[in-house]
Design a protein around this nucleic acid. Structure first.
Length: 268
DNA sequence: GTAGGATGCTAAC
DNA sequence: TTAGCCTCCTACG
């Protein structure tokens, strides 16, 4: 489930459930036993997100750096934690509990190591201090397709396969267009739109991108049924008719990821 | 029961 | 460009 909105939501949830409190930390799976032992009993002083990276701060002990990758999942809840299972990499318990499974990364890091991660990430539409200027500098000079650039975390942090497909659709941009052929106006609009969409994603904890006039209710069509769970225009809608123009949604693999777009609304 | 795919990324070729 | 990481869920027998 993890695009940037998921991680920002997790940071907020951790701040709410564990912030300022001493937490119990454990690694039922065993793969993070050493780190959990060092953090156990410490106070969670901050929880930050940058793109798809989550940082949990424990004062002098350092930071737990978490990246969910493709499979990683969090189960955060109130009350008593369920009996631990052997796939839980990290369990935090205070007033509530947070169980982490299947992450690409779960490691204890220092301040400089954390800074190095920030340094190699591009601006994040969900971080108030970030803006699209640095991203535009890269995009506007690149011959790489805009679809690939949007997925490059050094260019823009937090966008994944769903937001990529959806933002390109919403702005009528062909995914194969080279970055340098995207106009300033188009980029600014996409950046601003991503900030709105992703903030909504944090709030709802899912990705919804359809405008009011294209919702299932407004269009008299059945709601989307998909394990991804959000209302979208093109993501995983291959061969179905476009909600706007009726053309058949196309799909193609690009750099090992499935790309989805509407040839009618996003002409080459 | 098994295979395959998924909202990600890196290292190695 | 490909394999590998690592977990869960669905589709298909």
């Amino acid at each position: 489930m993890p695009e940037g909105h998921t991680i920002h939501r997790l940071a907020a949830d951790h701040a709410e459930w564990f912030g300022g409190r001493a937490v119990r930390a454990s690694s039922p799976q065993g793969k993070f036993s050493d780190g959990a032992a060092l953090v156990d009993g410490q106070v969670l002083s901050s929880a930050e997100a940058h793109g798809k990276h989550l940082f949990l701060g424990f004062g002098g002990v350092g930071w737990i750096h978490i990246h969910l990758g493709l499979f990683g999942k969090y189960a955060v809840g109130a009350g008593t934690a369920p009996p631990p299972t052997e796939t839980i990499r990290l369990r935090l318990v205070a007033d509530g509990y947070a169980d982490l499974r299947g992450p690409t990364t779960c490691a204890l890091i220092t301040d400089p190591e954390k800074q190095a991660i920030h340094d190699r990430l591009g601006p994040d539409p969900l971080r108030p201090v970030d803006d699209g200027e640095k991203a535009w500098a890269r995009v506007s000079r690149s011959r790489t397709t805009i679809a690939a650039l949007l997925m490059d975390q050094k260019v823009i942090a937090g966008v994944g396969n769903v937001y990529r497909a959806e933002v390109l659709f919403r702005h009528g941009v062909d995914p194969y267009r080279p970055g340098r052929d995207v106009s300033r106006r188009e980029w600014d609009a996409m950046w601003a739109d991503l900030a709105v969409l992703m903030r909504e994603g944090v709030r709802l904890n899912r990705i919804d991108t359809v405008r009011d006039e294209h919702t299932p209710e407004a269009m008299g069509r059945p709601p989307r049924v998909d394990d991804h769970g959000g209302e979208v225009y093109v993501y995983r809608r291959a061969h179905l008719p476009c909600h706007v123009c009726g053309a058949e949604i196309r799909t193609e693999a690009l750099a090992a990821r499935n790309l989805f777009w509407c040839p009618g609304c996003q002409p080459a």
